[in-house]
Amino acid sequence: MTVAIIRFGGSNCDRDAERALEHLEIDAEIVWHEDGLPAETSGIMLPGGFSYGDYLRAGAMAARSPIMAEVREAAAEGTPVLGVCNGAQIGCESGLTEGAFTTNESARFQCEHVSLRVERDDTPWTAAYDEGDVIDVPIAHGEGRYEIDDERLAELEDDDRVLFRYCNEDGETDPEANPNGSKHNVAGVLGEHETVAVLMPHPERATLPDVGPTDGQGVLRGFEAADGGA
């Protein structure tokens, strides 16, 4: 299998994702957005960054680029797709996942470690964890506040498609543990299929043991799990 890491002009976590996947012995390659998806693509990662400079709305331009049509098609056919940070914004902007990530409550960029509660453990992205596990993964975003109308959020929660919520060290999702004002502390959600997921925190920054915690490895292993399960 080969995971295609889509590089837009302003992607800046593409190399990090490649290094992290390589560490996990998951085959990955950076793909320039204008070159289209390679034939052998068996997984797609939308990495963090500022895709088109994001002078409009984060992810809005990238979502309308030709390669995203290919990504949507592949996702519909069951290819695993993971959007991280700017990739999550692109995921929502392009309709792969519901809701939107918008300006943090603080109106400032925030780079810090947060705790996430695993909301379900029967998806490829969370198979390495148990439901209720609390993991330490960093965030680095200015527009990460999850917004969605109440009705659709209720549906999303009824369908059990919230994957991670911001929590404190004890796993409680109280307002103080919410770094950016996300509705119901949502940090990551599933798309229509559980093979599609987006999250604002950076699992690739919590993967390499030589520089810090490795709680994010399980999320990236989702590419293996999805592949093995297919």
């Binding site: 800046n12 190399r15 990090d16 400032r108 780079c111 960093p138 680095a140 520089v211």
Partner: peptide
Amino acid sequence: VYRQYDHEVGVRTSVGPGDDAAIIAIR
């Protein structure tokens, strides 16, 4: 201040800001 700076992109930051000195992994 440093919360507003992305200090981890590049996945080399072993010790970040707020400490006596930062350490970057030159693998």
